[in-house]
């Protein structure tokens, strides 16, 4: 998994909770990388899981909630890095429709080995977008957090419902977005 995800997770823990909690979790997890993450490196996905599990234990928050919050944090980071892209998309539907075709293509130019989740967007009506998330990582909640952050960013009256198509593994989930 790309190092950027790890550095951002640590940053989120520092910002939302505290520096001490972040370092304490890293120390407790005894991570093979020692937590010395760099955005341009690649690290074992299991390290991310270990950090999130430890964070949940320490804070008493639910794991899906934490992953969802991380999605929101990642959206803010993307927005800060690529404001022009988000301005150009103009709305959540367009953004999600361009994820696989445009956004992930750009990511692959920089990181050819990035293992990205697959997003299949289907406009079922002018006001209904069905987005299917597929990834063995099972981070559908992160996708949900990104979607919610996008809706908030564009100030859109969109409601989101989701259905897990992978028997609770959160690896294959359909999100239905309805624009009021």
């Amino acid at each position: 998994m790309k190092g950027m995800v790890f550095t951002e997770l640590i940053e989120m823990i520092e910002a939302r909770f505290s520096l001490e909690l972040a370092e304490s979790i890293i120390e407790a997890c005894a991570l093979p990388s020692g937590g010395a993450y760099t955005a341009i490196g690649t690290y074992d996905h299991a390290e991310l899981v270990a950090i999130v599990v430890e964070l949940a234990e320490r804070t008493g928050a639910e794991i899906p909630q934490l992953i969802h919050a991380f999605g929101g944090h990642l959206f803010a980071t993307f927005l800060k890095d690529r404001p022009a892209l988000f301005a150009q998309m103009g709305g959540t539907f367009a953004l999600l429709e361009h994820l696989d075709g445009t956004v992930h293509v750009e990511v692959r130019k920089l990181y050819p080995d990035a293992e990205l989740p697959r997003f299949h967007a289907e406009r079922r009506s002018p006001t209904h977008l069905a987005l299917t998330y597929t990834s063995e990582r099972g981070f559908a909640d992160l996708a949900h957090g990104l979607i919610d952050a996008s809706i908030a960013h564009y100030h859109e009256p969109i409601t989101v419902t989701s259905e897990d198509l992978s028997a609770g593994r959160r690896a294959h989930v359909r999100f239905d977005l309805h624009h009021a």
Binding site: S18, E20, E23, I26, A36
Partner: peptide, 21 residues
Amino acid sequence: MDQIRALQLRIEREQRARRAA
């Protein structure tokens, strides 16, 4: 963990990350 210890750990971690980068 107190704040100074946390900062120390963080600096060490950042240094290792920089070398890795």
